[in-house]
Design a protein around this nucleic acid. Structure first.
Lengths: 116, 116
DNA sequence: CCGTATCCCCGGGGATACTG
DNA sequence: CAGTATCCCCGGGGATACGG
């Protein structure tokens, strides 16, 4: 319950958490990752309808950032009209544990705030 | 490596992760929590100087939100002039594992992006 | 179908000054 | 010391239309 192991590389660790948050804290990032993860492979328009409220502009932008960060892989299918598939990379899948823990904590947090 | 366990309560879990992110993804939240956690108890002006770039307005705002979410406890000391101590609550401390994992992932992520 | 381009508005958040 | 108040600017992000 104490934070003694933070003592040594305090600053460096703070930068590392911040790096993670920079990647994940985009407005729709987690939802997009969840959607793709759940269906394994998912098309642009499918993700668009999975996530309530997102615009095509934002989806496009967020997908681009996730791809830049090597969390997802984009594949253009040679169909007519064009189809694009998104899937998680190995690196993207390495987030699974963290997402699950954030899920559990979110549930506990809701209980804590709403008063059990 | 698959995401089968997401199948059942997909929507509910997505909302839960989002709840967590809503609490944590504020611009300075993680830094503030880390600072307080590292020193166990910390004063307003100390946190202000711990975190490079934050303004007193933002610090005040973020602290208020963290307190509302019961992650930190605010204590006014009866000194002259007034001193205020911030510390993590039990609930706030329950984030420690997640923060540590985000730290580890951040380091791995940097390696992934910069190319080992 | 999968995006990009454009327009436009609102609020996040910095700088600074002020109060108890 | 620990904030609040005010001013002000810039860019995040929505709506809509267009292009390959």
């Amino acid at each position: 319950m104490e934070c003694k192991n933070f003592e040594q590389n305090y600053k460096k660790e703070m930068r590392a958490v911040q790096d993670s948050m920079d990647v994940l804290s985009g407005k729709w990032k987690i939802s997009i990752l969840s959607s793709i993860c759940f269906y394994s492979k998912r098309r642009f328009s499918d993700i668009l309808s999975d996530i309530e409220g997102i615009s095509n502009k934002m989806l496009s932008k967020e997908l681009k950032e996730l791809e830049l960060n090597k969390l997802i892989k984009r594949t253009v299918m040679d169909t007519q009209p064009v189809t694009v598939l998104y899937e998680l990379t190995k690196h993207g899948l390495s987030l699974k544990t963290i997402i699950e823990e954030l899920t559990d904590w979110g549930i506990r947090h809701r209980k804590e705030i709403t008063g059990r």
